[in-house]
Design a protein around this nucleic acid. Structure first.
Length: 171
DNA sequence: CCCTGATTCGC
DNA sequence: GCGAATCAGG
């Protein structure tokens, strides 16, 4: 599938529309999200309302986009009661929106570090973690990111036959 | 595990 | 120019 004038136009439209690369790819068909992203970059139109994108390394310039967000009085469910007894030491009972410090951390609590360990506001996630686990379900997936192919030094796709095969499968 | 965009670089 | 593989992150 080639990038015809029409397809490029559609791509730009959908991209401006706020659709993700995958969604665009699915909508257009014949292309993968990678193709879409690649094309988007080549067209020079990247990063629109893209959240979470602090540029590789450490982006120096960050748009001070200050927007007034409506504060929603999120009603918290009573999950606090789930937290079992606090045997042994730890007289500190900071829970109500407070933080879980190294002193209050329990075996069944997520040990995902939050904040700067050098600062005193450093604490842990503290969310319920599976028995024997160190993190909650959300942080566990971050901690155990599946090994993403590290055989080759970088990109190395020599077998063109394999490419054709994958292409066919994708199409 | 799902997902997002960003980047590299053989083709 | 293209886009798969990979990276980096939510």
């Amino acid at each position: 599938m080639a990038w015809t004038d029409e397809r490029v136009e559609l791509l730009k439209t959908l991209w401006a529309e706020g659709l993700s690369a995958a969604q665009i790819a699915n909508k257009m068909g014949g292309v993968t999200r990678n193709a879409v992203i690649g094309k988007v970059h080549r067209l020079g139109l990247s990063g629109r309302a893209t959240p979470a994108k602090p540029q590789r390394g450490c982006g120096p310039s960050q748009e001070p986009r200050e927007e007034v967000v409506t504060v929603k009085p999120q009603q918290r469910t009573e999950i606090k009661s789930v937290i079992p007894e606090v045997d042994t030491i730890t007289p500190v009972v900071l829970d109500t929106g407070a933080m879980t410090t190294v002193a209050t951390i329990k075996n069944n609590m997520c040990k995902w570090p939050i904040g700067d360990p050098a600062k005193d506001d450093f604490h842990f996630c503290g969310q319920p973690a599976s028995m024997g686990k160190s993190y909650c379900t959300h942080h566990a997936r971050l901690a155990f990111q599946p090994p993403q192919r590290r055989d080759r030094p970088m990109v190395r796709r020599p077998a063109s036959a394999l490419l054709e095969k994958r292409r066919a499968a994708a199409s």
